[in-house]
């Protein structure tokens, strides 16, 4: 199983990355309990910020950004964590998501999480993140995790992280193995031949 972690924190280290790492650890542990072997890859959007903007402006992807997009596309599951800015995910987080090819996340199990200064913004999970990933046709785990500054000292956060990790692991295990179709491979079952395009 390949778990890719999308972390859009702006500082280094960031609480967003800290939350992402703990969610990844919980998911990995739950998957191993279920007998799966797990590989993880981390996409730190901060290091790709200029590449993301360059792609949006010029369509040209750097090799680093290309690798990150591939890590997301090839994953069996995604852990997506954004800081909360002005009632939503950060612009940079969304901009990275905007660079993904259409359909990249369709059918992919995704664990949503966000960080913020106060618990009063925790609704961002269900007002911003979940609609975005629903639009992208991802399968979001029922539990999404919000960590405000005060949560880092509370056992409640640990419990939510563990539950979210278990839910993501159950989703991944329940689904058939993901295989992305390659539009440039004529042997791919999803390839559309010209006869089909002509309607013959």
């Amino acid at each position: 199983m390949r778990i890719t972690v999308l972390a859009a924190g702006l500082s280094e280290p960031s609480s967003t990355r800290l939350l992402a790492d703990r969610l990844t650890a919980a998911t990995t542990a739950a998957l191993r309990e279920r007998g799966a072997s797990v590989e993880t890859a981390v996409v730190e959007v901060r290091t790709l910020a200029h590449d993301v903007v360059d792609l949006l402006l010029t369509r040209v992807a750097t090799p680093e950004l290309e690798a990150a997009r591939k890590a997301v596309a090839d994953a069996d599951a995604l852990v997506a964590v954004s800081p909360t800015f002005s009632m939503s995910y950060s612009g940079l987080f969304k901009s990275f998501v905007d660079t993904l090819e259409e359909g990249t996340l369709a059918g992919m199990p995704v664990l949503l999480a966000a960080t913020g200064g106060t618990p009063r913004h925790s609704m961002v999970l269900d007002t911003a993140l979940r609609p975005l990933f629903s639009h992208l046709k991802a399968l979001t785990a029922p539990t999404a995790v919000y960590a405000a500054a005060e949560d880092w000292g509370s056992p409640g956060l640990d419990a939510r992280i563990e539950r979210a990790g278990r839910e993501l692991a159950d989703l991944v295990m329940a689904l058939p193995s993901r295989r992305r179709s390659d539009p440039f491979d004529s042997d791919d079952p999803g390839f559309v031949s010209f006869e089909e395009m002509l309607g013959r």
């Binding site: 903007v53 402006l57 040209v60 750097t62």
Partner: peptide
């Protein structure tokens, strides 16, 4: 089309 993006060298 490619202005205000990558450096000339990167492009």
């Amino acid at each position: 089309v490619y202005g205000h993006g990558p450096s000339l060298e990167d492009f």
